[in-house]
Amino acid sequence: MAPTATTTAAAATQPTDLLLVQRGSTPYKATAEQVKAYVLTPASAAAIGGIKPGTNLTVEADGTLHAAIPGALLYKGAIDPTTEDAPADAAVGDVYLASSPGPALASWSGLAGEAISQGDLLLFDGSAWSANAALGPDGLGVVRILAETPVTVDENDPAQPLIGISGATTEAVGVVRLAGGTDISAGTPGAVVDAAQLAEAMAAAQPAGDYMPLDISTLPALP
C-alpha cells in the first residue's frame, strides 16, 4: 500500500511568535507583536530613516512617487504658429519654439495676429499664450543665432541649429587646413603653409652659404 502524502499548511503568524533577527554577529529576539509595533525613525541629513510625501508629492499604491512642481516649464519642441494651430492639449508651463516668423493664427489665444519672430519661445499659462515669456524679466536669453561670413547657421531645425564655417577661397575669407610634409611635396590643393613651413622649405631648397646656380648665357654681352 502506497504511503499517504500529508500536506501541512503554513500557520499564520501569531503575535506571540518569536522572531530572530541577526545584525552582524549579534542575534536579537522579538515577538511578532513587537516587530509590528516598530516605528521607523524619520530620516535626517545624518541618518537613514523613513520619509513621507510632502507638498506637491503623491504616491501611488505601488509606491511610485510623483512630483508636481508649480511654475515648471516643459519644452515641447518646435512649431510654426503662422501655419499650425495652438496645441489643443496644451498644459500649464508648456513651451514651444517658433520655427517661422509671421502673424500667429487665431487659435493662439493671447498672440492671435501678433508678429512672431523665428526663435520666439511660446509659453502657455493655462489660458493664453505669450511670446518670449520664458525669458527672464530683463529679456536675456538666446532666441536666435546670427552669423557673419564665414560662419554659417543652418536653421532647418530651429530647436537645434547647426553652426558651420565656410572654406577659404582666393576671393573670400574662411577656414583653412595647414599643410603637412606630404601636402607640400605633393602640392595638395587647399592645403596652406605657414611662415615656419615656408622658411623650412626655402632652407631645404637653398642651404645657407650655398650659391644659387646662374645661367650666364642669359646675361647681356659685355661691351
Results as ranks from 00 to 15, higher is better:
Lys52Arg: 09
Pro3Gly: 06
Ala11Gln: 13
Ala47Ile: 07
Ala208Leu: 07
Ala205Lys: 15
Gly174Arg: 00
Asp94Asn: 14
Glu60Ile: 02
Leu40His: 09
Ala208Ile: 06
Thr7Asp: 08
Gln206Thr: 14
Thr182His: 15
Ser130Trp: 07
Ala204Val: 11
Ala68Phe: 15
Pro150Val: 00
Ser185Asn: 13
Pro3Cys: 08
Ala2Pro: 15
Pro207Thr: 05
Tyr28Glu: 03
Val143Gly: 11
Thr58Lys: 05
Leu146His: 01
Ser166Cys: 03
Val95Pro: 04
Phe124Ser: 09
Leu111Gly: 10
Asp120Val: 06
Asp125Ser: 03
Thr152Gln: 04
Pro101Trp: 07
Thr31Glu: 04
Ser44Gln: 02
Ala11Val: 13
Leu162Ala: 12
Thr6Asn: 09
Ala201Phe: 10
Ala128Glu: 03
Leu222His: 15
Ala9Trp: 06
Val175Ser: 08
Asp154Cys: 00
Ala186Gln: 13
Tyr28Arg: 03
Gly24Tyr: 01
Leu19Pro: 02
Val142Asn: 11
Ile48Cys: 07
Phe124Ile: 07
Tyr28Pro: 00
Ser185Val: 15
Ser107Asn: 08
Ala37Pro: 09
Asp215His: 00
Ser127Met: 00
Leu97Ser: 04
Ser99Arg: 03
Ala78His: 05
Thr55Pro: 08
Thr55Tyr: 10
Pro150Thr: 02
Pro70Met: 10
Gly102Met: 01
Leu57Cys: 06
Asp80Phe: 05
Thr149Ser: 14
Pro161Glu: 05
Leu178Asn: 07
Gly174Glu: 01
Asn56Gly: 08
Gln160Asp: 10
Arg23Tyr: 14
Val95Ser: 08
Val21Asp: 01
Gly164His: 01
Leu135Ile: 11
Pro27Leu: 05
Pro189Lys: 09
Ile48Pro: 03
Thr218Tyr: 08
Pro87Gln: 05
Val35Phe: 07
Asp157Ile: 13
Gly71Glu: 09
Thr55Trp: 08
Pro213Ala: 03
Pro207Gly: 08
Thr4Pro: 06
Ala90Pro: 01
Ala68Leu: 11
Leu40Ser: 13
Ile51Asn: 12
Leu97Thr: 12
Gly49Asp: 09
Val153Pro: 10
Leu178Pro: 02
Ser130Tyr: 07
Asn156Asp: 11
His66Asn: 12
